[in-house]
Amino acid sequence: MENEQAWWDSLYTLATTKIPIGNWGRTFFDFLTTNFAWFFDSLASTIASALDAFTDGLLWFPPLALIALIAVLAYALQRSWKLALGTALGLLFILNQGLWEETVETVVLVVAAAVASMALGVPIGIWAAHHERAYTWLQPVLDLMQTLPTFVYLIPVLILFGLGVAPGVIVTVIFASPAPIRLTYLGIKSVPQPMLEAGEAFGATKRQLLWKVELPAALPTIMAGLTQCIMLCLSMVVIAALIGANGLGKPVVRALNSVNIPLGLEAGFAIVVLAIILDRMSRIRSGAVR
């Protein structure tokens, strides 16, 4: 009888007492803001000034000259006249829609976030591939980063970094870096065993094995990770705009707030055009590496 009473009591406690996850989180972020504000502030201002300088540099070019340059770059990367022409036409369309400055800001944001994601993701992916047990721990973290609704970590990032482009980049990196991590891991993991053994049999050191066998063999998969990463970064443009990052997300947010269909469509099309151009340019050239 007594036992049963105790059981009911504990069940009652469970039902009425909330586990204070939210409060723990707040305490943690309070701790961070009070003790490391200097760090986050300086990080934010460094990111912001670097990106601003980059944006100003690109905007210094006359738009038509920059479009020509990008078309040439597209040709250099993919050896395709069609892509170069399509790139030029797409960018001219954006220029025509009066969204040039926003587009350049977005490109800078996306490229910066993609570079940061790759710089984090590729080494982590390699490390995980070499430490199988670590990956079993890493996997749920990656799942969390990709599935936790963005707005949830928008709040603490906003508190730590304030408004502006820096938190935009940070949020984008959190969202996009799991892709290169996973694909690098997959690429390194699926290097055929005989190739690794050929490396070992001829006396490769661990480092030689990585640089001369594993990375070249995994390169197509890693490049697929880059393409995916760029697309994921682009998909964060609107959310980044919500916390004050400039770019094509801004007009979308403005259009949403003012129920402005034309503005929304214009900015939306510009994002799509940009997405297609970036996707085609970052793809691995067919036949370049087999």
Partner: peptide, 8 residues
Amino acid sequence: QQFALLPW
């Protein structure tokens, strides 16, 4: 047996 050449 399977040559194990490096295709790149």
